[in-house]
Amino acid sequence: MQVEVNPNEDTEWNDILRQHGIIPEKPKDPEPLIQEALIEAAQRAHDNRLEDKDVDELDALEDEEDEEFLQQYRQKRLAELNTLQHTSLFNQVYPLQKVDYAREVTDASNSAFVFVNLTAQGANVESRVLTELWRQMAAKFGDIKFCEIRADMCIEGYPEKNTPTILVYKDTEIKRQLITLRELNGPRTKIEDLEKLLIDLGAVKESDVRLKKRSDSMEAGDDELNVEDYDDDWD
């Protein structure tokens, strides 16, 4: 007569069978591990609750947080701002000429990320959009060099349908190339799309304080672009 054994039962007989490897060990209850993970996540969230606060916001929390704890974050924010101030060397879009490309782009990428916009003149909407965003990005991320050159002045016969083209250089190598804004958000591309690109490439850290705050004027500029205000630097 064959006796059926339920291996999941907590019985003395099953314990003996498990000791001899006749039935597998009872699966561990996942709940304690899940509970532990949730507790750890809650603790990390509490410990990092000030990570996205700037100096003014930290000052506003004086009545709610321990002063010594706040002071640590104030010093951290001030150090970050000081570093940004000293590394913000560019803060403008650099118009390129082909003869200067190697020096201004390839060589310059040894010390900073260099983003190049191969643009088009005329009625190419995406080129107009990116040119305006390029100016905003250059002003916001001064430690990254943003350059622009008309595509057909850089590469003879470069088709306008492939513009704008973004080339990203670091350490003399092209790290990324995007042909048109299709991989971002097309003609509706905004600052946030380009900031995500910076993060993905490691050009800025996800914790970068500049990603946390955006001025009202810049947000308004992202929502609507007047292409008639476009200035063609390549005439």
Results as ranks from 00 to 15, higher is better:
residue 100 D to V: 13
residue 184 L to A: 07
residue 129 V to E: 00
residue 164 P to K: 04
residue 168 V to Q: 04
residue 132 E to W: 13
residue 138 A to Y: 02
residue 174 I to K: 11
residue 135 R to C: 06
residue 180 T to F: 06
residue 172 T to A: 09
residue 103 R to H: 14
residue 123 A to N: 15
residue 163 T to S: 11
residue 113 F to Y: 15
residue 154 C to R: 14
residue 135 R to Y: 02
residue 146 F to R: 03
residue 185 N to Q: 11
residue 170 K to W: 08
residue 188 R to N: 09
residue 171 D to P: 10
residue 101 Y to A: 08
residue 141 F to A: 00
residue 172 T to S: 10
residue 176 R to I: 03
residue 134 W to N: 07
residue 132 E to M: 11
residue 129 V to I: 09
residue 192 E to Q: 14
residue 183 E to D: 10
residue 98 K to P: 04
residue 105 V to L: 06
residue 122 G to P: 04
residue 144 I to L: 08
residue 168 V to L: 07
residue 172 T to D: 07
residue 143 D to A: 12
residue 130 L to G: 01
residue 134 W to K: 08
residue 152 D to F: 01
residue 125 V to Q: 06
residue 171 D to F: 10
residue 158 Y to H: 02
residue 177 Q to P: 06
residue 142 G to L: 03
residue 164 P to I: 00
residue 174 I to C: 10
residue 131 T to S: 14
residue 183 E to H: 13
residue 177 Q to M: 12
residue 143 D to G: 09
residue 148 E to D: 04
residue 145 K to Q: 03
residue 162 N to T: 08
residue 188 R to V: 10
residue 139 A to K: 15
residue 108 A to N: 09
residue 143 D to H: 15
residue 153 M to D: 08
residue 112 A to S: 14
residue 159 P to S: 03
residue 123 A to W: 15
residue 139 A to V: 08
residue 102 A to C: 14
residue 139 A to T: 09
residue 121 Q to S: 14
residue 180 T to E: 07
residue 136 Q to F: 04
residue 129 V to N: 05
residue 157 G to F: 00
residue 184 L to F: 15
residue 97 Q to F: 11
residue 132 E to R: 14
residue 124 N to A: 11
residue 115 F to W: 09
residue 148 E to V: 11
residue 192 E to C: 10
residue 105 V to E: 01
residue 111 S to M: 12
residue 157 G to N: 03
residue 174 I to S: 05
residue 173 E to H: 14
residue 192 E to N: 13
residue 134 W to H: 05
residue 179 I to T: 12
residue 190 K to N: 07
residue 136 Q to L: 10
residue 101 Y to F: 14
residue 115 F to I: 14
residue 158 Y to M: 05
residue 133 L to M: 04
residue 192 E to W: 11
residue 192 E to T: 13
residue 132 E to F: 13
residue 132 E to H: 13
residue 103 R to G: 07
residue 190 K to A: 09
residue 97 Q to M: 10
residue 105 V to Q: 04
residue 129 V to C: 01
residue 171 D to K: 12
residue 155 I to A: 04
residue 141 F to V: 01
residue 136 Q to H: 09
residue 143 D to P: 06
residue 132 E to P: 07
residue 180 T to L: 06
residue 113 F to E: 00
residue 181 L to R: 13
residue 144 I to F: 01
residue 133 L to S: 02
residue 160 E to V: 15
residue 119 T to S: 07
residue 179 I to Y: 05
residue 110 N to Y: 14
residue 140 K to Y: 00
residue 101 Y to Q: 08
residue 154 C to F: 14
residue 121 Q to P: 02
residue 163 T to Q: 08
residue 94 Y to G: 05
residue 152 D to G: 03
residue 175 K to D: 04
residue 128 R to I: 10
residue 177 Q to D: 05
residue 149 I to A: 00
residue 154 C to W: 13
residue 121 Q to V: 12
residue 121 Q to W: 04
residue 125 V to S: 05
residue 132 E to K: 14
residue 146 F to A: 00
residue 99 V to D: 10
residue 149 I to P: 00
residue 97 Q to D: 09
residue 153 M to G: 02
residue 161 K to E: 07
residue 110 N to K: 15
residue 124 N to C: 15
residue 150 R to F: 00
residue 99 V to N: 12
residue 152 D to H: 06
residue 108 A to F: 08
residue 154 C to D: 03
residue 127 S to K: 05
residue 152 D to S: 08
residue 93 V to K: 04
residue 116 V to M: 04
